[in-house]
Computed example of a mutant assay.
Amino acid sequence: MSDTLLEISGLRGGYGAVEVLRGVDLDIASGEIVALLGSNGVGKTTLSSILTGLVSCWGGAIRFKGREIQKLSPRAIIDMGLIHVPEGRHIFPNLSVRENLELGSYRRGRANRAKNMEHVVSVFPRLSERFDQKAGTLSGGEQQMLAIGRGMMAEPELLILDEPSIGLSPLLVEEMFELITTLNGEGLTILLVEQNVLQSMEIANRAFVMENGAITLSGTSAELMDDPELQRSYLGLV
């Protein structure tokens, strides 16, 4: 497709002698929410880590904005606008909310820091109420908002959200998915890496299902919701 922002072809990778990804193909068009779905341990986080240069690529190609990035450093990938909000949030607990957000623009977006900060707190108003509070004292939901807000400070062109709903109450999960929809409505392209199949499919344009390091199903959310294999394996409906 002509507006493809990210294209992954034949991607392989792993740790030590263990191959985790076995020829993954995936693409994301500008302006989409694409969900990468699968249970724990199938390779979703490994894929995110390879995309951002934290884990080496063994084979295949990753093209972001038409440029191959699989051999670039994490810093170079960030500078291009591919930003990762990792699983587990990884905020700095002893720094304030404001300081955590400011660190998000350390590599990219520094010139527009004040403007971007205003945008973040307009999306997550609770953070403005806690600017001088240590991040480690926030609730789990607030910490997730902070992690996403920190990613937004880097002016992402593609934002990878890795398990943003993990550890949250059902009410906060609902709120988190609504916020993701809001960000996408503002034009942000999102790769949503999740185990929460139903709610991810409700907001995603397309989805890819991963099992054992390979993509086993892909299509629009509507197509996959009608797929008997997805219903049997992930939703327990048939």
Rank of each mutant, 00 (worst) to 15 (best):
L159A: 10
V123K: 01
R98D: 02
L21A: 08
E99C: 05
S169I: 02
R232K: 11
R107I: 12
D3W: 01
Q143N: 10
L21P: 04
L171M: 15
R206S: 07
N40G: 09
L158V: 10
G16R: 10
R67T: 15
A147R: 01
T220C: 05
L188T: 14
A147K: 00
P74G: 10
R108E: 03
D79M: 15
G10K: 12
S2V: 15
L168W: 11
M153S: 06
E129P: 03
T46F: 06
S169Y: 05
V209E: 02
L146D: 03
E68M: 14
E194A: 01
N100A: 08
L26V: 13
G140N: 12
S233Q: 08
I77W: 03
S30V: 11
G66Q: 14
L138Q: 03
S56R: 15
A76H: 14
S105T: 09
L6Q: 07
G41A: 12
P170K: 11
Q70P: 05
N40M: 10
R12P: 00
D227P: 00
R75V: 15
L101P: 05
A76C: 02
R107N: 05
M152D: 00
V24Q: 03
Q70N: 13
G236R: 07
G185V: 09
E229T: 08
S218L: 02
A214N: 02
E7G: 06
Q195D: 10
G187F: 08
S139R: 03
N112W: 05
D162E: 10
